[in-house]
Computed example of a mutant assay.
Amino acid sequence: MKTTPFTRTKFRWCVSAVLLALASPFCASMRAESSDVNRTSEGWKTASPRDEIRPAFEFKRDGGPAGHGSLLIRADDREGLDGHWVKTFPVEGGHYYHFRATRRVTNVAAPRRSVLARILWRDDNGQPVHRDGPGATSYAPGEAPVAEPEYPADRHSDPSGWTEVEDVYQAPSRATHAIVELYLRWATRAQVEWSEISLAETNAPPPRKVRLASVHFRPSGKKTAAENCRLFAPFIDEAAHQKADLVVLPETLTLCGTGLSYADAAEPIPGPSTDYFAELAKQHDLYLVAGLVERERHLIYNVAVLIGPDGKVQGKYRKATLPRSEIEGGITPGEEYPVFDTRFGKLGMMVCYDG
């Protein structure tokens, strides 16, 4: 068929119209799917610092421990992927809010590092708000600090691997919105599934008072670890008399002033020094943190030991950031940052250079 410019134009228009007609159902389907995902995921959106490190996201309609839906994040075999689900909730400043979610991870070596929930407080303009309490006076007198993000804690896990994440927070007085973010980051070939997510107003938690005592005393004139330990008994007695719940003793107290080397002062944990302080903790019904020198096989650590009111070692933290003198003295740095449950709340420890 001979074509003229008009017929060629008409032919192109017809082809375009046919292609558009064929494509229209597909486009409508894509729009419907996007709308459906937005509706069923209840306003949650996805985000990543950069597209090139963006993981994969999926809303699983029948996911979660009860089958009511879940938000998935998947990482492939590339390193450094980082992404999160995000949603904004209205809040009223000064009121208390209970955050709760459940999550299940697959192939995540360190959940505390790679899987977390975060809450950001914002005003009507989406800007960070200031904390209500006073800030540091040493370098910023009179300046109100910005309210820091909240990081809800992991609670119990059920047999199927679902972990409850929850905490109660008071919204800063100028906050009108809370941004909730649910993360997967820095884990290869990994997945997290978030479900049952809520941020609801609640009653203020009951007041909790904890009395803390720290002992600033440098032993001298003694020759053994046991002699140094006994020097601290009067201080612990005085703290107990003032109804202290927790007494914190100095770093490497069994070494200080004795002339011993790290190796000579080192002992196993539990060991003679923890046995001594355990009796005092049990006698006074309080928690003790003692700075000791630990030996495990051929390794020596600068360690803080937590002893409970039942007279048992609750746990220990090995100093991770060592000064040159300790490195040159053969101390090995720790690699973990444990958190311990006590009757007044969770407790973590640092030693000297760690801070």
Rank of each mutant, 00 (worst) to 15 (best):
T4D: 12
P5G: 06
T7N: 14
S16L: 14
V18A: 14
D36V: 08
N38E: 05
G43Q: 03
G43S: 03
S48Q: 12
A66H: 04
L72F: 05
I73R: 00
R74L: 00
A75W: 01
A101T: 11
T102M: 12
R103Y: 02
V105L: 14
V105E: 14
N107E: 13
A117Y: 01
D123A: 13
D124V: 12
Q127T: 13
D132K: 01
A144L: 11
S160F: 08
G161T: 06
T163S: 14
P172K: 02
R174I: 04
E181S: 12
R185T: 11
T188P: 00
Q191R: 06
S195E: 01
E196L: 07
E196Q: 13
T202G: 05
N203H: 06
P205W: 04
P206D: 15
P207L: 01
L212T: 06
N228C: 04
H241Q: 14
V247C: 08
V248I: 14
L249E: 08
E251D: 15
A266F: 03
P268D: 10
L286C: 07
L288E: 00
R297D: 15
L306P: 03
D310W: 15
G311V: 09
K312W: 08
Y317W: 11
L322N: 07
E326T: 09
E326Q: 13
E326F: 13
I327H: 04
T332C: 03
P333N: 11
F340I: 03
D341E: 15
R343W: 11
G348R: 13
G348Q: 09
C352A: 13
Y353C: 15
